[in-house]
Computed example of a mutant assay.
Amino acid sequence: MNIYHDTTIINPLLVALSKFRWVLYIISAFILFAADKAPYGRFVVVLLMLVMILLGLIYKNLIVLLMQSGLVTLARYLLAPDSIPYIDSYFLVWVYYFIVGAAISVLVSNYIRQQQINVELAASFSRLLDSRDPYTAMHSENVANYAKIIAEELGLSKQKVKSVYLGGLLHDIGKISIPEAILNKKEKLSDDEFTAIKAHPNVGYNTLKNLSNYKNTGILDIILHHHERYDGKGYPNGLKGDEIPYLARIAAVADAFDAMTTSRVYRGKKNIEAALAEIQKSKGTQFDPAIADAFIKVVEKNKHSLIKRNTEDIFSVFFLLLYSNLPQKTIYITTFRHLLTDMK
């Protein structure tokens, strides 16, 4: 049983506190034993309260916190006996420390759960969007996974890896406003239809821009700028080079790779080698060269896992087919057939 909070999805401060808690323990011990006699009791009371808060940030198991608060109370009794003059005071202090630690732990648990809900909600939105077009089913999840491995290869922080993953899930959310007749059209798009397609980054951005959880994370940058080009010939704003937000440049490579390696209504797919060659060719024009190189490197190292992921996509769509309602079954049947064709 895991007694610790999941620090992979909480903010960097809590991650640092959890990772380097031993440093804080050493500092606390040093202060306790190096303090002058006069303010010693006050140091003990304040410092042990901080230790209890720290324990609440680290542990999610309340039984563990109950035992930890008992040890903290014992330490206070041994180091500052004047602060606990009676036996009933001892138990009251124990309960007080436990309540403090438990309250902090519950707050952290709720925060973590909210972050998990955000990811699940983004995944649900992406599946809803992708289900409108059997040729692009799983596209958003694929882009999210590709963007994540690029970010990890580039050594970005866990917080930015999380943001680029969520941005990948939501990058095409603006397409929800585009009629299916345009999304599924086999013939060349008219100018008006292409204009409608090009509007989806702005639509997606305007839809989600007021969500506080997505502000200042890079997620909105991905939604708005994943079709910008490194040479400035992209849309919607024609940004060039470093003007394009960094996470959006990552998503652009991931988006293009998945688009090339899956069948679409208007064309067939490329194999992995051909897609990588196209990315290599487009360095400095469509893609950030450093990001393209990182992606090519990581894909060449993990070709087997990419093939495995395609197999997992088939099983995912199969289960969606089993549990979907009647109107959705037609979409998922077609999707399942296209995924099987792509595996050949």
Score class of each variant (00 low, 15 high):
M1V: 02
L50S: 02
A292C: 09
A34P: 08
H225E: 04
I27G: 00
H5L: 13
V72A: 06
K233N: 10
I219M: 06
F30W: 12
P179I: 06
S126Q: 07
V299F: 04
I331C: 01
A35S: 15
T311C: 10
Y111D: 07
E300H: 13
M49W: 10
L128G: 13
L48M: 10
A181E: 13
Y230D: 00
D172T: 03
V95C: 04
L166A: 03
Y59G: 05
Y97P: 00
K158A: 13
E228L: 06
S282V: 12
N271Y: 15
F315Q: 07
I84V: 12
P245L: 01
N302C: 07
I10H: 06
V108N: 00
I291K: 01
A181N: 12
F194M: 11
D258Y: 02
D231R: 06
N2V: 06
K344V: 01
V45P: 00
E273C: 07
E312C: 10
V108D: 01
K215N: 13
L339P: 07
G218R: 12
F91V: 03
K188G: 09
Y96C: 06
D191Q: 15
Y111R: 08
K185W: 05
L306D: 09
Q159R: 15
G268V: 05
I173H: 00
K301C: 11
S190V: 04
L211N: 12
A199D: 10
A292T: 12
H338T: 10
Y332F: 15
N213F: 11
A103S: 08
T8E: 08
G70V: 00
G41V: 01
I99W: 02
L62D: 00
I197L: 05
I173T: 02
I333A: 04
L65C: 07
K162R: 15
N216A: 09
A123Q: 14
P39V: 09
P85D: 02
V203W: 05
K281I: 05
R113Q: 12
V15T: 15
G204H: 04
Y97V: 00
G218H: 10
M138K: 11
N216V: 10
